[in-house]
Amino acid sequence: MPRKYTLLINGQSFSVDVEPDEKLLSVLRDELDLTGTKYGCGEGQCGACTVLIDGRAQRSCITPISAASGKSITTVEGLAKEDRLHPVQQAFLDEEAMQCAYCTSGMIMSAVSLLNQKQDPSNAEILQFMQGNICRCGTYPRIVAAIRRASGAMKESRP
């Protein structure tokens, strides 16, 4: 039976009426029309659906709505502050780290999570953390460069 859930997404509160086992991904995309978060596999294997839950990267396609409710959720739509892009978004643009860009929002969310946990990750740490995100267009080297660049930019902007 559908139930009412309250979701805190990008600082805004939403209430939805869905089944408890419905996944966060389809709620975001179908119910709330937040389509920046993508479907790539629905099985936790590709990272296209990555969002932040309490600041950490999670695969929204395997996160039941009941597990997301009440927590702070950030999607790619919520990263930029007003007109100012998040440093990771800016770095993806600067490094041209995309072709079809379908993987991009998941990549950005994973990268933000990584940099939240570790300000200055080594290359090996970047690869390890990002290994679950697939880019079929093969823009991996540029994504790594973008994460490096963002890490530098975030360091500079810290007092």
Binding site: L34, T35, G36, V76, E77, E96, M98, T104, S105
Partner: peptide, 13 residues
């Protein structure tokens, strides 16, 4: 640079 790059990094596209 990609003409509409911003729409992709913000999830708007």
């Amino acid at each position: 640079p990609k003409v509409d790059g911003r729409d992709f990094v913000t999830g708007k596209h």
